[in-house]
Amino acid sequence: EDNEEPDPLPDNWEMAYTEKGEVYFIDHNTKTTSWLDPRLAKKAK
């Protein structure tokens, strides 16, 4: 069984939802937002 907990978001990142219910990510370090999960970006490298 694969019950892995997702990795926590990096420091100062926040997950948020648009009015349409779409997930996006806020990077408080750089005051930017991203559609890409920063956790996935790390694994892709």
Rank of each mutant, 00 (worst) to 15 (best):
residue 2 D to S: 14
residue 25 F to S: 01
residue 11 D to N: 12
residue 35 W to M: 07
residue 36 L to A: 09
residue 10 P to D: 05
residue 31 K to A: 09
residue 8 P to N: 07
residue 10 P to T: 04
residue 17 Y to H: 14
residue 3 N to A: 09
residue 35 W to A: 03
residue 28 H to E: 02
residue 39 R to Y: 01
residue 6 P to C: 10
residue 31 K to D: 05
residue 27 D to E: 03
residue 24 Y to T: 00
residue 8 P to Y: 07
residue 10 P to Y: 03
residue 2 D to A: 15
residue 25 F to W: 09
residue 43 K to N: 06
residue 16 A to K: 09
residue 22 E to V: 06
residue 30 T to P: 00
residue 28 H to W: 05
residue 42 K to R: 13
residue 20 K to E: 13
residue 25 F to T: 00
residue 24 Y to R: 00
residue 3 N to H: 14
residue 20 K to S: 12
residue 34 S to E: 01
residue 43 K to D: 13
residue 19 E to W: 06
residue 32 T to W: 06
residue 27 D to R: 01
residue 39 R to G: 04
residue 42 K to L: 14
residue 30 T to C: 07
residue 3 N to L: 12
residue 45 K to E: 11
residue 19 E to N: 13
residue 33 T to M: 03
residue 17 Y to A: 11
residue 11 D to S: 15
residue 31 K to V: 04
residue 4 E to R: 15
residue 36 L to S: 08
residue 29 N to L: 10
residue 21 G to W: 02
residue 39 R to S: 05
residue 3 N to E: 08
residue 31 K to W: 07
residue 18 T to F: 00
residue 11 D to W: 10
residue 16 A to I: 03
residue 19 E to G: 09
residue 16 A to R: 08
residue 41 A to G: 15
residue 28 H to A: 04
residue 27 D to P: 00
residue 29 N to G: 11
residue 34 S to P: 06
residue 33 T to W: 01
residue 44 A to E: 14
residue 29 N to T: 11
residue 33 T to P: 00
residue 33 T to I: 03
residue 28 H to S: 05
residue 19 E to V: 10
residue 22 E to I: 03
residue 27 D to C: 03
residue 37 D to W: 01
residue 43 K to L: 09
residue 26 I to E: 02
residue 10 P to L: 04
residue 31 K to T: 05
residue 21 G to A: 07
residue 20 K to I: 09
residue 11 D to G: 09
residue 39 R to N: 06
residue 32 T to Q: 07
residue 23 V to G: 09
residue 26 I to R: 05
residue 32 T to R: 06
residue 24 Y to C: 03
residue 26 I to L: 09
residue 35 W to L: 05
residue 24 Y to L: 03
residue 26 I to D: 00
residue 31 K to Y: 07
residue 32 T to N: 05
residue 29 N to W: 08
residue 18 T to I: 00
residue 25 F to R: 01
residue 24 Y to D: 02
residue 3 N to M: 14
residue 14 E to F: 01
residue 11 D to T: 14
residue 39 R to C: 04
residue 10 P to N: 04
residue 19 E to K: 11
residue 30 T to M: 05
residue 11 D to C: 10
residue 1 E to P: 12
residue 13 W to G: 01
residue 14 E to R: 04
residue 7 D to G: 15
residue 6 P to K: 10
residue 32 T to F: 00
residue 16 A to L: 05
residue 16 A to G: 09
residue 17 Y to E: 04
residue 18 T to G: 05
residue 36 L to F: 07
residue 26 I to H: 02
residue 18 T to P: 00
residue 17 Y to W: 13
residue 21 G to Q: 10
residue 32 T to M: 10
residue 20 K to T: 10
residue 17 Y to P: 01
residue 3 N to V: 11
residue 25 F to N: 01
residue 39 R to H: 04
residue 22 E to Y: 05
residue 2 D to K: 15
residue 23 V to W: 06
residue 29 N to A: 13
residue 23 V to E: 11
residue 27 D to I: 00
residue 42 K to M: 12
residue 3 N to Y: 13
residue 40 L to M: 12
residue 36 L to D: 07
residue 13 W to S: 03
residue 31 K to L: 08
residue 4 E to Q: 15
residue 29 N to S: 12
residue 21 G to I: 00
residue 1 E to W: 03
residue 28 H to Y: 03
residue 7 D to L: 14
residue 43 K to W: 07
residue 35 W to P: 01
residue 13 W to C: 07
residue 6 P to I: 09
residue 36 L to K: 12
